[in-house]
């Protein structure tokens, strides 16, 4: 087990290095930001001077070495638009994104899992069919469109919820729920199929044959064993939510990382884009690592090689 942990951690570090190289190349592909920063009446000498000042005239590997040295200290250069450290700006917005991602995640777990379980317990009933049907439908709905529909209904028509910005519960509920819908529906379906599979296993039959209370069988034996594959999906979902609520953030003018990136792209402010991609990718790598280790812990049958 210890060997497996070390191996996975080394893999994760290697992955982060690759992420860094790609993030660097991403910036390099954008050409030089100097021409964007300068006034339109800047002379060629001004531009050349600025380039030299910022080190854009150096060979690629020198630029990478400098970038890497900065990056491991969390320094991704200054935002071209704001003149402040880009990573600091991204980190400042991160709590908002985390709030929405966790909120959406919570909805997916709290609603998706019980509905999926109930559907499995009552297989082929009207309730089961309804659950499956609704989740199939929800999975087809684009979440950002649903967000717009929410605004139209709750903010414009009923006038009960604010349509933009971040604040208390009333600001939080629409974006978080809209962001969760796809994951919620998927979670319910997955939970259902997992549960059905587990309930066909021999040890459930054995438990029933022993005359155990059906409730105990379902809640203890079945639920516990179907949790294992769900953990992996949960981890992946959280990662996807962290990096993937961009459009929802734009729709609700939610002051998170995604919206910051969209604005930065419009202003060609690439240090911000870089910092954000790096931050989110690191988060993703760390979540995946945690999930893998958790998985190994939960399922002793897994081989640690």
């Amino acid at each position: 087990m210890a060997g497996y942990v070390v191996k996975r951690v080394i893999q994760a570090i290697f992955l982060l290095k690759l992420v860094m190289i790609i993030v660097f190349l991403l910036l390099h592909m954008t050409g030089d930001p100097v021409s964007v920063m300068m006034d339109t009446d800047a002379t060629l000498e001004d531009i050349a001077y600025m380039k030299k000042l910022m080190g854009f005239d150096q060979p690629l590997w020198v630029q990478y070495a400098r970038f890497f040295k900065g990056a491991i200290q969390g320094n991704f250069g200054e935002s071209i638009e704001h003149g402040e450290p880009a990573m600091a700006l991204v980190l400042e917005r991160f709590p908002a994104t985390l709030e929405m991602a966790l909120g959406a995640f919570m909805f997916a777990v709290v609603i998706g899992i019980p509905f999926g379980c109930l559907a499995a317990f009552k297989e082929d009933s009207l309730y089961d069919k309804g659950c499956v049907g609704i989740s199939v439908l929800i999975q087809a709905v684009p979440d950002f469109w649903l967000a717009i529909m929410f605004i139209m209904f709750f903010s414009v028509f009923l006038g009960v919820l604010p349509s933009f910005g971040r604040g208390g519960w009333s600001h939080f509920i629409m974006p978080a729920f809209a962001a969760s819908t796809y994951h919620l529906a998927r979670m319910a379906r997955l939970m259902r199929s997992q549960m059905l599979e587990v309930m066909r296993q021999d040890y459930i039959t054995t438990a029933r044959a022993k005359g155990l209370n059906e409730k105990i069988i379902l809640m203890v034996h079945a639920l516990k064993n179907s949790a294992i594959p769900i953990v992996t999906v949960l981890g992946l979902d959280l990662g996807i939510l962290l990096g993937g609520t961009v459009i929802i953030e734009v729709v609700f003018a939610w002051p998170g990382v995604g919206r910051l990136v969209v604005q930065a792209i419009a202003n060609r402010d690439f240090p911000i884009v870089q910092s954000a991609v790096f931050l989110m990718a690191s988060g993703f790598v760390i979540i995946n690592l945690t999930v893998d280790l958790l998985y190994a812990y939960l399922d002793p049958r897994i081989s640690y090689s």
Binding site: L15, L26, G258, V277, F284
Partner: peptide, 23 residues
Amino acid sequence: MRLVDLVLSFPFILLALATIAIV
């Protein structure tokens, strides 16, 4: 498979936004 891991570890939408914005 490491390449696959690498692709999976990127926040796809952000990367897509950045790439489209560049090219």
